[in-house]
Amino acid sequence: MGLKELLLTLAQALVDNPDQVTVNQVEGEKSVILELKVAQEDMGKVIGKQGRIARAIRTLVKAAAAHEGKRVVVEIIQ
C-alpha cells in the first residue's frame, strides 16, 4: 500500500543505513499505525532537531492518508 511505501521511501532517503529501515503496519478500526524503525545511529536523521524532520515526515504521510480518506499515526520506535 502507498502509505507504508511512502514512509519507507522518505526514511531510506535520509539515513545512512537504508537496509535497516523497516515499517510495520498495524491496522486499527479507523486508523492505521505505521511503526518506523531505523538503525540506532540513524535516529537523529529521522527525528531532527526539535523533531523537525519527524514533523515533516508525518505531514507528508498524513497528507497521503487524507488523500485516501484514512487516518494515520506514524510512530518512531527505539
Partner: peptide
C-alpha cells in the same frame, strides 16, 4: 493540491526533506 496542502505546508515539508535527502 495534495502537494501544496494548507498554505503550502505539504510543499514546505517535501522541500525540507528533499534538501536533506
Amino acid at each position: 493540491g495534495i502537494l501544496i496542502g494548507h498554505h503550502g505546508d505539504h510543499l514546505d515539508a517535501l522541500q525540507y526533506l528533499c534538501n536533506l535527502a
